[in-house]
Every structure is written in C-alpha cells, then in structure tokens.
Design a protein around this nucleic acid. Structure first.
Length: 273
DNA sequence: TTCCAGGCGTATC
DNA sequence: GATACGCATGGA
C-alpha cells in the first residue's frame, strides 16, 4: 500500500477507487458529498472527510487522520487489502460483467458495521435511496451519531414517528429487542454457513432474504451473499437467466455491486434519452 | 392522479 | 411453493 503522512492528513495512492462510485452507490447511506471530490461520513463514531486530489492517478486525502486510525479503521473499512484489479480481470471473462466493471471501475465493497447495515437495510425495504438517506439522517441527527441497539432500547414504533419510516419502525424495534436479548446473534451470523446465517437474521420481523443478504454482505463482508432486490432481479432476468457465470463464484456480492450500478444507470440513461 | 422505491407479512390456493 | 395484496411515505 502506497501512503504518506502529510501534516495532519494521510495521502493515499490507490487504484480501483472512486469516491462517487463507492460512497454513493446504494451500499451506504450516510456519506454526504461536501464538494466536487469530497465526502464526509463516519464508521461507527469515527468521522472522516475524504477527498480525491487526483482522479487520474488515484490520489486521496484522508483529512485529520492519524496513521494508527488510517491503518486501524479506514484500511479495513475501504477494503484496501483486496485487489479489485485482479477481481475485475477475473470478472471480465464474462461479456456483461466486463462492461459493468468498465462502466464504474472504482467501486469497492465497504466493510460496514453489522448493526448499522442490518438496521439501515430494514429501513431500505420498499423505499428509494433518497428517502432512505432522509430517514437515516433524522436518526443520526437525533442520536448524535448512528445509534447502537442499546441506545434504541427504550424506543417504540410511536416514539420513532419523527423518523417518518412508516411501517418499518416496528421492524426496527423488533430488531433492537432481538439483538439485545440475544435471540438473534450477529456474531453467529458472521461465521455460520450462509443459509443458516440468513435464517438467523430472518428471525427478525421485517427481515426477509433480501435484507438478510444485505446485512451479510455489507455488514459482515460475507461476499458470497447475493441480495436480490428489484434491480438485481432485472439483471438476472435480462442477462443471466441461467444464473451468474462461473467467474464470480464465491464473490457474488462484489460482482453484484458492479451489475447493480450498471443496470441502474443504463436505465436512467435510457429514460433521459 | 397514479406509480414506484436495494421487501416483507399474510392470506389463499 | 407460488402468487396476490396491503403497507407508510414522498418524489417523479
């Protein structure tokens, strides 16, 4: 890894990394674009401003970040130990995936917090991305950061009315109580075989196969999980009626990121033109 | 006004 | 197991 300390910042040279494609592609909901090539967000209670200094050479500045913090938090969060160039070469054996990877070559899979992913994707169901961000924005503003299950212990669907989350508020409080009681173990879900991990999470009211897979993929880096939302269902119906190709085996969740982003933008362009 | 959104629970067959 | 429908909210 190629990084240097500069004043209070860390400057990183990193290929296969684009801020828009990684932070605004529907995997995380509380990164805010604060300038043309700058985002502000957080992992757990650790805030970060990250900016791109040189798009062509892939140079990034992690503002006000110590070396310990960079190596201990952000290296993992941005999945900097994974070679996405190698992944994309493997995927490019498939014609459609080759196009999807070329369309947004700077996508990376974030290693997010499990509870945040679970609760965020409960909120995401039958909802659109701008409104998901709105609800999560009100949640974090109210609690001064993303609330833990413990911080939500005494909330009820009614006390969460300010979120304007609709029917999802009761799902959220059920997730809180089951996680706190140990009825659902996020730690178990990290290591159980995928189908059993999915069933563990689906004990929560309002968590079905799709939200469970999103939790496994985005909150636990279970990259074999393949969340089937409306867009991925379109991907499979249009391009892969017989299933995803052999070259994605074991990393379906990462391949899904490229395909999800690709088909959403293809459709948007088709509508615009 | 109607349709839809990174779905799920329920009823019905 | 599959299919149909309602669900809160708000933007297009």
């Amino acid at each position: 890894m190629d990084y240097t300390k500069k004043d209070k910042n860390i400057v990183l040279k990193q290929p296969d990394f684009d801020l828009d494609e990684t932070l605004d592609c529907g995997q995380a909901f509380r990164w805010v674009k604060t300038a043309a090539d700058e985002y502000r967000g957080a992992f757990l209670n650790k805030p970060l401003t990250v900016r791109c200094l040189d798009k062509h050479d892939g140079v990034f500045e992690f503002a006000d970040t110590t070396e310990d913090e960079f190596l201990g938090v952000w290296y993992d969060y941005f999945d900097l130990g994974t070679d996405y160039g190698e992944l994309k070469r493997r995927y490019s054996a498939d014609e459609t995936l080759a196009k999807a990877c070329a369309f947004a070559p700077g996508i990376r899979l974030l290693r997010q917090d499990a509870w945040e992913a679970l609760s965020s994707f409960i909120i995401s169901q039958n909802n659109n991305i701008p409104r998901i961000k709105g609800i999560i924005g009100r949640l974090t503003e109210h609690f001064g950061g993303y609330p833990t299950a413990e911080q939500l212990r005494n909330e009820t669907p009614e006390s969460l009315d300010f979120l304007r989350a609709g029917f999802r508020a009761a799902y959220l409080t059920d997730a809180v109580s089951r996680v706190l009681s140990g009825d659902v173990s996020l730690e178990a879900a990290r290591t159980l075989p995928l189908d059993e991990a999915r069933n563990e999470l689906m004990k929560i009211r309002g968590v079905g196969p799709k939200v469970a897979d999103c939790t496994l993929l985005f909150g636990m880096y279970r990259i074999g999980a393949l969340p089937k939302d409306v867009w991925v269902k379109r991907v499979l119906a249009q391009w892969y009626p017989n299933g995803l190709p052999e070259c994605v085996k074991g990393t379906e969740g990462i391949a899904q990121q490229y395909l999800f982003h690709y088909i959403r933008n293809m459709e948007r362009q088709a509508v615009t033109v």
